[in-house]
Design a protein around this nucleic acid. Structure first.
Lengths: 148, 148
DNA sequence: ATAAAACCTCAACTTAACTTGAGGTAAAGG
DNA sequence: CCTTTACCTCAAGTTAAGTTGAGGTTTTAT
């Protein structure tokens, strides 16, 4: 009885503030699902509204669609996810958000102490040689020697 | 006398931890400069090492090449930038970093209070309806009504 | 019964930030 | 001198996250 898929793509798009093309795209990527009516048009269960909204919220946090897809994969597929299911996603993302924030705070601190003081030394500036704790953004080791 | 351009592209690449192709790219984008030797090979002044390092540091902060280019444009072009010049860049970026951090902290807070509590309401969740204060990441207004 | 609005598919285009490759020249080492 | 290794240019490919457009069908409204 929770199985009625009633929304058209236009309705979902409007209510979520995205284009229909984005919904096609999300579906192609396996992030959302739809069924079809007689005339081959997509029909969505209202659950998709929450999914799309969560996608948008996650993107604001800097989470990629790939990661969102992985997170969605942890949701139950035999039933519509409930509040508790979504809470679990949320707590994962809160943690990732926290480490992202910590990473940036770190950078800022170094920027303050390092470029800020004018050192910007090619030799030992932690901003350059820093081994990232957030691998997703990291670029790897660098070798800088003192110049001239 | 500060005008000797002595480094080869390979040397710069190795010392900065980037590929030669990236240096070509930065040059094409107008972020760095080079002169040429007899045989048309690039030769770099050592100042480029600082520039490339600053590019990398800025990128870690989430600053785009376009923005970096704009920032570099504020550096003096009649002389090699000095510590004070770089400090000014640093303080701009520190500010932008701070607002980026604040934005994420805000999101986290809402995530904690909102998805975290399991509400995730299509109706009033600030995470969805939020007007971003950081336009660069924003996606605009959304209209969500209560479903069902 | 139409005309207009909404959909459909599939391919190609967009931006960012580079990388890869092809075809050819220059510099360095033995 | 000759062979690597390093460079050069220019075009095309890569990933992310979609958008745009062409050509054609369905729905909806009049």
């Amino acid at each position: 009885m929770t199985q009625e898929a009633i929304l058209t793509i236009g309705q979902v798009a409007k209510r979520c503030g995205v284009n229909s093309s984005a919904l096609h795209f999300y579906e192609a990527k396996g992030l959302i699902q739809s069924s079809r009516n007689q005339g081959n048009q997509r029909r969505y269960h209202k659950e998709v509204l929450r999914r799309v909204s969560v996608i948008k919220a996650a993107q604001k946090m800097g989470i990629s669609l790939q990661e969102i897809k992985l997170a969605f994969a942890t949701l139950p597929n035999n039933r519509t996810p409930n509040d508790k299911d979504w809470q679990q996603l949320a707590s994962q993302w809160r943690a990732s958000l926290t480490s992202r924030i910590r990473y940036l705070e770190n950078l800022r601190e170094q920027l303050t102490g390092c470029i800020g003081c004018g050192c910007l030394s090619m030799k030992a500036c932690p901003l350059y040689n820093n081994n990232d704790e957030l691998s997703a953004i990291g670029t790897g080791a660098i070798l800088l020697e003192d110049v001239k």
